[in-house]
Write a protein that binds this DNA or RNA. Structure first.
Lengths: 223, 223
DNA sequence: ATTTTGCACACTGTATACAAACTGCAATGA
DNA sequence: TCATTGCAGTTTGTATACAGTGTGCAAAAT
């Protein structure tokens, strides 16, 4: 199942994980030769992987100078989260009437599974996946694939910063509670309240990140 | 100025134009070798160009089987246009208060320039560019680059169908009138009315396209 | 006659090799 | 001293060559 088809895809998937995991600080150059050695492939699939990541906004190409990891300004982070509010409340509103019991059960399963993982010495590494899977489970019944794809893009771009926040603050429990609240409102079919909760859920995460970044900006380099 | 940096970028830009121009019908395979001959380059830059176009949604890769042009279902077209309404009214509302005289003048210049081109035996080929330039001129003052980027994506994906409609119906004049109306409302700073007009402007274009596609679906292949 | 197996062809995916562009430093000149 | 030019090293961008996978037809078997 997880047997990757092409080397380029494998490199792209792994490298994405490394970037999102914070292995490279913003603006560092990704040398094709070094990556090719890392993965024991030639530079061709590495280049193709970097192009893929460029289209996802994780990397920027400068002609004849190579690929550099991107770094988002506070203004751009705010913009991304505002877009998430706009698009995610939009799909949630469309999805909420068509939610079947099976859909709700699926979302709940994901939630409980992560609750359990959280209690037994939770891993933050795959929190992003759980988080995204939960949201997608709620959004899927809207049957708006293009919209979900845009939302996925926005999540990928903001993922690094969300993780950063989770490492430095202990907001996961709060987010989990909000997820439970969201599920309950969805079950009741209360679109207005659900969207309102979703909105604050996203906005508060944004503010947490911004606060962290601005605090960090004050301090000189600590490496 | 227009001296392209890399061959891959040149191929991507040109090929995008050919796809949007309707040279390939939906689902046709784009053979790397043939394209490499067309552009007198090797397959490497061709592959990279195809990857770029894949990220724009114009092409789909199937592992070991190559790249195929995409074709959108009516449902997806409707979804794309609904997203355009959502995002474009969002930015217009943000932009409309900050519009300077210079911004308005710039938008008007674009409009008048195309009016003139239209009267002297108008070219449809570059209508897409004019159209997009006009909308961007109105949206730019919002200073929401990520949002504009998403809008640009949506426009690229739907561009083929817009052109198709313009070829078969004579809606350009109507669109031009709506553009003038939009500019006037923007000048007055009436965000509500401007967004309302923008919404119907987009929605009517969508319905025109859908009608055309459904009509065409009834007829057998006429080639 | 229908299905199956195998093989040959075609095309994609990737490695290797080469050309071109950028970077930094050193030498030269004002 | 400071700016400028030229050169060498490094890295990217691309061509060529090879390996691997999918496709279709033909021959063989039931």
């Amino acid at each position: 199942m997880a047997t990757y088809k092409t080397r380029a895809q494998f490199v792209a998937d792994d490298l994405r994980g490394r970037i999102l995991g914070g292995e490279f600080k913003g603006g560092t150059q990704l040398r094709q030769d070094a990556l090719a050695n890392d993965y024991d492939v030639s530079r061709i699939p590495v280049r193709e992987a970097l192009l893929t990541l460029e289209s996802e906004g994780l990397v920027e190409f400068h002609a004849h100078r190579g690929a550099f990891t991107t770094e988002l300004s506070v203004a751009k982070i705010r913009e991304l989260f505002d877009l998430r509010v706009l698009l995610e409340t939009y799909v949630l509103r469309h999805a909420i009437n068509g939610l079947t019991d099976a859909d709700l059960k699926k979302a709940e399963d994901i939630l409980l599974k992560y609750d359990k993982a959280l209690n037994s010495g939770g891993d933050i590494d795959n929190w992003s996946e759980y988080n995204f899977a939960f949201h997608q489970a709620l959004y899927a019944p809207a049957e708006l694939p293009e919209t979900l794809s845009l939302i996925s893009q926005l999540n990928t771009k903001s993922d690094r910063y969300i993780r950063m926040q989770l490492v430095y603050t202990q907001e996961i429990e709060k987010a989990e509670q909000e997820h439970h609240g969201l599920l309950e409102l969805a079950r009741q079919g209360d679109a207005d309240k659900a969207c309102e909760l979703l909105k604050t859920h996203i906005q508060e995460a944004c503010e947490g990140i911004v606060a962290l970044l601005e605090e960090r900006a004050k301090q000189p380099e600590t490496s």
